[in-house]
Design a protein around this nucleic acid. Structure first.
Lengths: 279, 279
DNA sequence: AAATGTGAATGTATTCACAGCT
DNA sequence: AGCTGTGAATACATTCACATTT
């Protein structure tokens, strides 16, 4: 990630909790429609990006697209794009390209977007509000169906149309509303406890904004978005660039003013870094 | 990715915009203190995670830690941790472990956290508010020194102590306040324009929450955090798990009720997915 | 005895480059 | 002629396993 990734993550990227799946041991399964496992994690992340690019094209009534065009729109190179698409099947036409609508359908199928995934957001602070009001969630496929906080003043208050429940009711409410994805937007302290309750409530996928490493059973998928980490990665790149610039001016001319780019005043030094606050 | 990346970005992860750095061509540089380049992107992301774990230990007045302990706290295995740390130097003591304060100092140095990085947030919607109020930013090293929006009703209003400026003034204000990191929290449409202005204002690192692939000069580092992508990756894992469960129950007994875990009501199908709204 | 630091081995991801289809 | 789909080649990342140091 870079991109990470910031992912985020993780990406590097972002996805740290790399749940290595056991199974596969005995029966060597009939492999009926068993291609899902074959898709590399990194490719899955990009499929989502391609999907967005394709939706944009569909909106402009583009019906056909080549790997070069789509790759440009998604910000990757075309070989990678073609390989990624090859993991989900062969839906292109040689000499022509891909039909936009077909590709959209196939990626949606692969990503499991042909069913709804109820989302619960825990921690209705600044970020929780932002998430609860996020138009992109419910617009297609990810209806926010529960909100939780521990503040009694918040409980019962509707945010983005959904009344906030108390975190003591996580298990019950999540089971009830068949929540599959939990979003943790609490401060660090509460996060593990919240996570445990979500899992107890049947949630198998968690998006974690809290700056903690969550402990979960191996059948639960966690993705982490960590602002502090993202900022620090960027900081590293600033520092690297400065070193480069310095090294470079060492090499050529040692004394002459530096040419245009890269100038940066050092600024005062300060130690210790703890970005463990709440969002 | 988680990270992530990534991944983050990519993230995995998060880190998509993987700017491959040229240079290295001619002089075979004296390599004075040129170890910065050697650190793999994935390791950089984890250093930030170790740093947080170490800060936690320091708060508990732990002075020494072994790779096993620190690895557990950071959620990675100890071999990986040791290799990551080896990229920044040898600061451990065989038979003993690492001194917490030394490691914190060295990681901070490596990540460039010994100087301040002024941050500008563009787009003061729900997310922008959350970011502007984020205690973790200014607490150490990342002072938010500028906010921007295009809404005239917002301009001049202080958010988290900083008055909002108009996006027309990005170049001027960023140059003036020596902003090094720009955070884009605008809707998709405005993002590229905003990005261009940030770059013109001397910003070399960008954290992008808008669902677009930004075009930037190669000396600008972009990390992307994409909610929609994260959700869709989780959706993929839900789908995969279901397939697994289905395949598994095919294998053993075909007709018997499934054992405890993994039950999930299919829910109705719906097509098309476009999560391009604003946060 | 305990734990680091690191070459070598393995595993994963990206890129190349071209055969094969339309 | 153009563009996909994919093996083979390369690059990158993780893990192993052990010599080395305290």
């Amino acid at each position: 990630m870079t991109a990470h990734g910031a992912d985020v993550q993780d990406g590097d990227g972002q996805a740290e909790a790399d749940s290595r799946i056991e199974s596969k041991q005995s029966v060597e399964v009939p492999a009926a429609r068993e291609r899902a496992r074959a898709i590399p994690e990194a490719a899955v992340a990009r499929l989502a990006v391609y999907l967005r690019a394709l939706s944009g094209l569909a909106d402009q009534d583009v019906t056909t697209v080549s790997s070069d065009e789509l790759a440009a729109a998604a910000g990757v190179n075309s070989a990678k794009l073609r390989k990624d698409l090859s993991y989900i099947g062969s839906y292109g036409t040689r000499g022509v390209g891909y039909e936009v609508s077909v590709l959209i359908g196939q990626i949606e199928r692969t990503l499991g977007l042909t069913r709804k995934h109820s989302v619960a957001v825990v921690g209705i602070g600044n970020l929780g509000h932002a998430l609860a009001n996020y138009g992109g969630f419910p617009s297609r496929g990810f209806p926010v169906s529960a909100l939780f906080d521990l503040d009694p003043d918040l409980v019962g208050v509707p945010v983005g149309g959904i009344p906030v429940s108390h975190i003591d009711d996580i298990v019950e409410v999540c089971t009830d509303r068949e929540v599959t994805i939990g979003v943790i937007a609490t401060p660090a302290q509460g996060a593990q406890e919240v996570c445990d309750r979500l899992v107890a409530g049947g949630v198998t996928c968690i998006l974690n904004f809290a700056p903690v490493v969550l402990q979960v059973p191996e059948d639960v998928e966690v993705r982490k978005v960590d602002l502090a980490v993202e900022m620090q990665i960027l900081s590293f790149h600033v520092a690297r660039r400065q070193q480069e610039a310095a090294a470079q001016s060492d090499v050529d001319g040692a004394d002459l003013g530096p040419p245009g780019t890269g100038e940066q005043v050092p600024g005062e030094v300060e130690s210790a870094n703890r970005m463990v606050e709440r969002l």
